[in-house]
């Protein structure tokens, strides 16, 4: 009888112990959790309130996101536009540069030839034959031949030859290029394929050789790096509309 009572008591103690264990376990787990999620805002809010808050924030986020996307799209557009403008600007400035070079408004550099003509007028070749002076026609022929051989820029004694360049002589005295007086020796710089240029002016039919045969002192040199200065005056148009 005594043992039976003890057994019953033991079972009771164990079960109550287990119950206490379970209760305390759950309680302390809960305490722990509440302590960990100690965010004052969230703690005091009900779940439905949180949901409302969340949805409102979500809405705001979506709105801002659409605005952001629009802005990004716009900025992308502007960027593209600017790029296209820049491209156009680049192309135009390149073209302008090219045109300036062709017109002679910029200093240019490149390989080509240097022709030097020293006038030996008056030298007696024989008893009754004197050497005639170099005329504007000689220079014009040489310039023409050089252009025909593909010269890209030509200067005579530093005066750039452009589309409106005039080469003429005043009386028998001196030549004028671009309205500026020049004296011999005449130095003609030409940028272009040096072989073509040289063979054109000094080969058979070349006017430099012809001048040499007439008794003038001439030289044609190939130069890897010729500098030709720009046209020094302003380009005016008065009658062109």
């Amino acid at each position: 009888m005594k043992i039976k009572i003890k057994k019953e008591k033991l079972v009771m103690s164990i079960t109550i112990g287990i119950a206490c264990f379970a209760l305390m376990l759950v309680m302390f787990m809960q305490f722990n959790m509440v302590k960990q999620t100690d965010i004052t805002g969230i703690e005091t809010m009900r779940e439905s309130e949180l949901r409302l808050e969340l949805s409102s924030w979500n809405e705001k986020y979506n709105e801002l996101n659409t605005i952001y996307q629009e802005t990004v799209g716009k900025s992308e557009e502007y960027k593209n536009e600017r790029e296209s403008y820049e491209k156009t600007y680049e192309l135009l400035s390149k073209e302008l540069e090219q045109l300036n070079k062709a017109l002679g408004k910029t200093d240019v550099e490149g390989e080509g030839i240097v022709i030097q003509l020293t006038d030996k007028a008056g030298t007696q070749l024989s008893e009754d034959v004197k050497v005639k002076r170099i005329t504007e026609e000689d220079l014009l022929i040489i310039v023409n031949q050089l252009f025909a051989a593909g010269a890209e820029a030509i200067s005579i004694n530093g005066h750039r030859v452009i589309s409106t360049t005039s080469i003429f002589s005043i009386g028998e005295e001196f030549l004028k290029v671009n309205g500026e007086r020049i004296v011999e020796p005449y130095v003609i710089n030409a940028i272009g394929n040096p072989d073509y240029l040289k063979s054109t002016v000094s080969g058979k039919g070349g006017h430099v050789d012809a001048l040499k045969e007439l008794g003038h002192e001439t030289s044609v040199d190939i130069n890897k790096n010729i500098k030709i200065e720009k046209y020094e005056k302003e380009l005016h148009t008065k009658y062109i509309d």
Partner: peptide, 12 residues
Amino acid sequence: GCIVGALIGINA
């Protein structure tokens, strides 16, 4: 029961 439960609950 209380002590064991509390200890395990704290460390859970």
